[in-house]
Amino acid sequence: MKTVLITGANSGFGLLTAIELLKKGHHVIATMRNIVNKDELIEEAEKLGAYDRLSVYQLDVTNLAEIQLVKANIESCYGKLDVLINNAGYCQGGFVSDLALEEWQNQFDVNVHGVLRVTSEMLPLLQRPVKANIINISSVSGMIGFPGLSAYCSSKFALEGFSESLRLELLQENIFVSLIEPGSYQTKIWEKSLSSIDTDEMDTDLKQAVLSYAKKSAHSSPDPIEVARLISRICDKEKVKFRYPIGKGSKLLSTAKRLLPWSLLEKLILRNL
């Protein structure tokens, strides 16, 4: 049985991953920004007969005091962590010309600095002779920039660079860092992202095309259980890779970014929109 900490476990990939890990017999420490959203996870744990292996804590990744409190509780109850899954994040939609500086700062504070805060605090619990894992949830948007998602893509690019450095720093300590790079999936991240966009700002053909494409993707994307099951498998693997692209177009985009000239790539992206 492994002890696994997941941030942002109230919905989407985090919720589904917590359930998959409970099914496998692991102890799951599920954290979420708003603890009132815990009911669905608790109900699923009770159905599985796994409630005794689930701990739920309030944790806003922008709040260092809450992170330190969760760390103290983990240290007191378990003394260690085997896996840290940095899943908490959100997508700030909008074009550069329409986004306020505060919106950029908030995006980075959660998606980048939040991962840094949690990882830095939990690292001592992972540093033991046995193998440990840090799994950071990135995105296909961390491979390539898309119009209308400049803040989100920038935050995921930053997460990719942070994870590359962290992987190299921790390999000799037997801590393996991995990146999950999902394409578009049916999670609430799309709903929340689209709700933040002022439709009055969608005053050009490109903006309208991007908004239409995003709405279509939100409803036609695959089941996010695929990602949860991948994360669950990685938790049990002895040897883990660094990057795991998954989902429609994710591997193709990764290959295209490496091999195609940018002039061709941008034409393909804009044509697809």
Score class of each variant (00 low, 15 high):
199 T>I: 15
199 T>L: 10
199 T>P: 01
200 D>E: 14
201 E>L: 10
201 E>K: 07
203 D>F: 10
203 D>M: 07
204 T>G: 04
204 T>L: 05
205 D>F: 10
208 Q>H: 12
208 Q>M: 06
208 Q>R: 14
209 A>H: 00
209 A>P: 00
210 V>D: 03
210 V>N: 03
210 V>A: 05
212 S>T: 13
213 Y>C: 08
214 A>M: 13
214 A>C: 14
215 K>R: 14
216 K>S: 12
216 K>D: 12
217 S>K: 13
217 S>D: 10
218 A>G: 13
219 H>S: 14
219 H>L: 12
219 H>E: 14
220 S>F: 10
220 S>P: 01
222 P>M: 09
223 D>H: 08
224 P>D: 03
225 I>G: 00
225 I>M: 11
225 I>S: 07
225 I>E: 07
226 E>P: 01
226 E>Y: 09
228 A>Y: 04
229 R>I: 00
229 R>N: 13
229 R>T: 07
230 L>A: 04
231 I>Y: 01
232 S>D: 00
232 S>Q: 10
232 S>A: 15
233 R>W: 07
234 I>G: 10
234 I>L: 10
234 I>E: 09
235 C>H: 08
235 C>F: 02
236 D>N: 15
237 K>W: 11
237 K>N: 13
237 K>V: 01
238 E>A: 08
239 K>A: 14
239 K>N: 15
240 V>A: 12
240 V>E: 00
240 V>N: 11
240 V>T: 15
241 K>L: 11
242 F>I: 04
243 R>T: 07
243 R>A: 06
243 R>M: 04
243 R>E: 00
244 Y>T: 01
244 Y>F: 12
244 Y>M: 06
244 Y>R: 09
244 Y>S: 06
244 Y>I: 08
244 Y>A: 10
245 P>W: 00
245 P>R: 04
245 P>M: 00
246 I>H: 04
247 G>K: 07
248 K>S: 10
248 K>M: 08
249 G>A: 08
249 G>R: 03
251 K>E: 02
251 K>L: 13
